[in-house]
Design a protein around this nucleic acid. Sequence first.
RNA 1: GUGGUCGUAGUUCAAUGGUAGAACACCGCUCUGUGGCAGCGGCCACGUGGGUUCGAUUCCCAUCGAUCACCCCA
Length: 459
Amino acid sequence: MPNTKSKSSAPKRAPYVAPPKLAPVLPPFVPKKGMHPIQLVRGMRDLLPTDQHYWKQLAVQSEKIAEEYGYERIDTPIVEETTLFVRGVGKATDIVEKELYSWETPGGESISLRPEGTASVVRAYVQHGMLNQPQPVKLWYTGPLFRHDRPQADRFRQFFTTGFECIGDAEPVIDAQLIIMAWNFFKALGIDVTVRVNSLGTPESRINYKNALVTYFRSKRHQLSEEDKKRLLKNPLRVLDSKDPGMQELKMEAPQMVDWLDEESKSHFMRVLEYLDEVGVPYQLDPYLVRGLDYYTKTVFEIYATSDDQELAQSALGGGGRYDGLVELLGGRPTPAAGFGLGLDRIVSRLKKKSPVVESARHIDVFLAQLGEMGRKKALALFEEFREAGIMVGEAFAKSSIKSQMEIANRRTAKWTMVIGQKEVLDGTAILRDMDSGTQEIVDVKKAIHEVKKKLGLV
RNA sequence: GUGGUCGUAGUUCAAUGGUAGAACACCGCUCUGUGGCAGCGGCCACGUGGGUUCGAUUCCCAUCGAUCACCCCA
């Protein structure tokens, strides 16, 4: 090391460590016939350039809504300690029981790809002491989630969501405003949706209700299908959602959730609905709406595309609710909170169906066509000048025939094409062609930028 | 995770127990000096593995993937 005179304040140099031995050189990879083609891992997807503008639209809309309602962006890792989800989402939920991507690290920690966003945000809220900020703390995020489901149309193992979490206030107006936000999000995108709402009450009232439900259906056991008997054990509230035709009558007489809500939850729910009425956001009461995460309390809601056609609109575009117990569950002070998430993949899919036409070509002001090596050099340099002047330039420097360059200029709907060949370079000129009329003129190359600006009305 | 359907060029679709065609797209030429048109040419596929068969893209099995329902939700 030539560095002999080290400054006294400089930190001590770390002791020299020999670089690891290089791996033995492997023979070069030779493709063989019969090799299986490498393709996407099941449930994964590529977001192709042709679809990017839909995604961008959602990104813009998410940010806009967040700003309008005073939510601040937060990004949490896609990997968390497994315990976060086991505790937060609930051990017995499908999401944790069979859909979690978990593994053990070399260091022996059990970690998981996040299957939802709320737990991480609450973890961050607790860990960074956000309880010391003015309450409620309003946070939003967007990113990928992972669940090991069986894939289907609009159902992926990696999917993208945008979520909004409002932590630190118990008022029903919070719940209502979250629903209003979600409603406005879809309204701005021009997607017709139906909001379904329900109240699960406090954990205690929910348990009482569950027990009542189980008692009721047990007494009618002989009338239940095998499927529903299983459900009764696993998730009694789901029995009410059964499609079994024989169930319809039984359901009519089954205990209703509303009747088992504690007084506080009931009045909370009524007030949420009043607020929605006040703003004019339509909703459907859905007494069978249960969410797949244990942390929900009181208000829950889901958003579905309004199926105007025969398309099955059975998959929710978004959903959320209140989770008053979660902050405490994750080690924070008892803190009420509520939030919702939006399924971006499914929303993109709706947007695509709604307006499948795509205008792909990016806008360019002028296309630079070159001819011969001298022309190419000049055009390459000119491109930089245009770029620095803020003019959008198109080019195909790798092409040599003027014809193919004109074709590309045309395809990219350039209004102007500037042609520079050997002759022009020697003369210090350039040809400026109007692509609509086909007329062209010779301009001084030194004034080329000014000339183009003039044509574009920028000067 | 359970059950059903499906799997041919980049895309949309054909045909066939004797190894596959078209359209569009892409690349090139006609045309190193001018795009939208045209003509000509090129490129590219039977998801993978096994079985039956003289011979399989076709029939059978498995597998992978997609899709639908269940399930679940985003």
